[in-house]
């Protein structure tokens, strides 16, 4: 019990003292994970909308494929992105390996199938009259698709929140392509892994507690947005 209480007290202490290293880690974690979710959503939301709304040969296979990709281990994604970004890899010339940019790329790859699968589910379960109603009122096909997205907004927002939850808590990809460099690519999860390996369990617990506080803040903001849209 002391282990948990110690971690909690230390975490609160670090927050209260405005510890620059902890706030730096929090800021980087937020920046990387939010950027990754936005990047993934730019592709995943339109794709999910398209797959969910249209009927075409191979649709069922695509849906099963995206659902399967949800089980993709983070280290595998890390490995693939590492391979792409490494010096001899096809994207090695970008010089992104061991930078926050590489972490954003890896986390976006992780979030993409999850957001796509959840948007497909949201659109498929939505009332099928939304699109035709918009069209009969004079919408273009793009405006009708936007109407569908607006009607499914709560489920789409939940998909984005789930995507954020997936990437902000992952450690495998972030450590492989980010390298856990202090003051540069160290996020909550990579720092927790480091502290644990050093035997600094209380410090690890403290960081875990702060990660939860950050996730709570992001989810509260998302709920506020939902309330405003009601």
């Amino acid at each position: 019990m002391d282990f948990f209480l110690g971690g909690l007290t230390k975490g609160l202490g670090l927050l209260a003292q405005l510890d620059p290293e902890v706030y730096g880690i929090a800021w980087l974690s937020l920046r990387v994970s939010l950027s990754a979710v936005i990047l993934a959503a730019l592709a995943a939301v339109p794709l999910g909308l398209l797959i969910g709304q249209r009927e075409f040969p191979g649709k069922r296979f695509l849906v099963v494929l995206f659902n399967t990709l949800l089980a993709l281990p983070t280290v595998v994604v890390g490995l693939v992105v590492y391979g792409l970004l490494s010096y001899h890899g096809p994207l090695g010339g970008l010089g992104l390996l061991y930078t926050p940019g590489a972490m954003v790329a890896a986390q976006a790859v992780l979030a993409f199938p999850l957001i796509t699968a959840l948007v497909i589910a949201a659109v498929t379960t939505l009332d099928s009259r939304v699109g035709p109603t918009a069209l009969t009122l004079g919408a273009t096909r793009f405006q009708a698709a936007w109407a569908v997205l607006k009607e499914a907004r709560f489920a789409v927002l939940a998909a984005l929140a789930a995507g954020f939850g997936r990437v902000v808590t992952e450690v495998g990809a972030a450590i492989m392509v980010g390298g856990n460099i202090r003051h540069y690519t160290r996020t909550f999860t990579t720092a927790i892994a480091l502290e644990t390996s050093k035997g600094e369990f209380a410090q690890g617990m403290a960081l875990g507690f702060i990660l939860l506080v950050v996730a709570l803040a992001v989810n509260l903001a998302s709920h506020q947005l939902q309330a405003r849209w009601k």
Partner: peptide, 15 residues
């Protein structure tokens, strides 16, 4: 379509 409008049997109203 902007000259024609349809009211369905159970019309869908936006939320």
């Amino acid at each position: 379509r902007r000259q024609i409008t349809l009211v369905a049997q159970q019309a869908y109203l936006f939320d």
